[in-house]
Design a binder for these strands. Structure first.
Lengths: 229, 229
DNA sequence: CGTAGTATTGACTAGGCTCAAGGGTGGTGG
DNA sequence: CCACCACCCTTGAGCCTAGTCAATACTACG
């Protein structure tokens, strides 16, 4: 259970800042950042923002996990990314001027800070390092999504599951992967039933261990091989 | 046939600049841009850059069309985007510092200008409007790719073809869509044979007309409906 | 201890891929 | 200018992955 009273995290001493966009901030920057942010507690399955809404600022993950997803015609989710501690979410929409193209909601209870659009854009204007970090991040994600598209169109569900387990193992490290079967299926891009059958198959082959809802990667090398490329 | 001697396009009078990243450039900027760029003629099916190589600069489309793609394990291409006149290609890799994650090559003979990484990054540092334009563009593409991923994982090939024809009709406007069957299949994300069978079906239903390799959209509304969402 | 959500299993179907063979067409060189 | 070759396009047959529908087990929480 997270500390719900943790409403006043201090950016200067925040232990997850080192892998965030704000890692390069000097003391003055940190004071400004700290004063402009607000920190909130979120329960499991609570939305941060919803596709179609207008963005009002960015979110900075202090603790917890958040899924970023779109909904297809039928309403089925496709999870594009799972954000963990240190990640800044929703800055794409700050620049485009458009409504959110994606939705975000918590996968577990989380402590998440919020910075208004105004404050965030001001920081970018005055801080070249932050700006470069953001451009690098946008570029990196763009490259990742191209690979994602190719995986979706050319890999089998089996290959994509192997690939996904590797990514998720890394995101959840040092803990076990902890997602509902439905969320995992929506990340892989398949039906829940198909996912379950494949998980069993992976287990029988000694690639993973299933601890109820939690999944443990046993043989990373075989998974890499199975995922291809 | 394009004018192969068109080696010295002038940015100040370039007729495609109005829909490019450089639309906001003042006279001084344009002089600088014009002097730092070089313009080359490319034959059909000539590469601009290849996945894995290190980027040396960006390309600005003067005339022609270019496909941007990745290759899956088997070597099959997945076309992510088709760039037309006015578009600037390859700037993502300028910021990430990584090798290209994608390849680009011409779909028809083209005149394309080149700006070195140094010059391009200098321009960005000194020109806030250009910078904002680029951040907006990166953001826009990021949103588009999220939709692309969802389409790939949730739509049928039939739906994706309808969707693709709408996008391509727009890119090729006012001309007819002019791609090889294989390239079209690689854009839709399917096998060439499946694509051909579906094209015939679309033709029988009066959605498109087939003029040998060229395709004409006849009933845009029905295609929209068929594409879903 | 009931109830709602979550997970699992089975049976069936079909969309779409692969392999294989045949028909067109445009570009080039003689 | 024409013939040939290479490449592109098209069609057919068969199979298999993975989606859907339906029924049943499990689990956590009030």
């Amino acid at each position: 259970m997270l500390d719900k009273s943790h409403k006043n995290a201090n950016c200067a001493t925040c232990e997850v800042r080192s892998n965030s966009l704000f890692s390069s901030f000097c003391d003055d920057d940190l004071v400004e950042l700290n004063e402009s942010k607000t920190c909130s507690y979120y329960k499991k399955n609570q939305p941060l923002f919803i596709e179609g809404n207008l963005p009002r600022g960015v979110f900075c993950m202090h603790q917890g996990k958040v899924k970023i997803f779109t909904r297809g015609d039928s309403g089925k989710e496709q999870i594009i990314h799972i954000a963990k501690e240190g990640e800044v979410i929703g800055f794409r929409a700050m620049f485009s001027g458009d409504p959110y193209k994606l939705s975000a909601s918590t996968l577990e209870e989380s402590n998440i800070c919020f910075i208004t659009k105004e404050n965030f854009l001001d920081m970018i204007d005055s801080n070249a390092t932050l700006r470069k970090g953001i451009m690098k991040e946008l570029s990196k994600e763009l490259g990742e999504r191209a690979v994602f598209i190719t995986n979706m169109s050319q890999k089998s569900v089996r290959e994509r599951l192997a690939y996904s387990l590797l990514i998720l193992g890394d995101i959840y490290k040092p803990d076990l992967i902890n997602l509902s079967r439905e969320d995992l299926a929506n990340f892989v891009g398949t039906a829940t039933e198909t996912l379950i059958r494949l998980l069993k198959d992976f287990k029988d082959k000694g690639l993973i261990e299933i601890h109820a809802r939690k999944l443990e990667v046993l043989d990373q090398n075989k998974l890499i091989h199975l995922a291809g490329k």
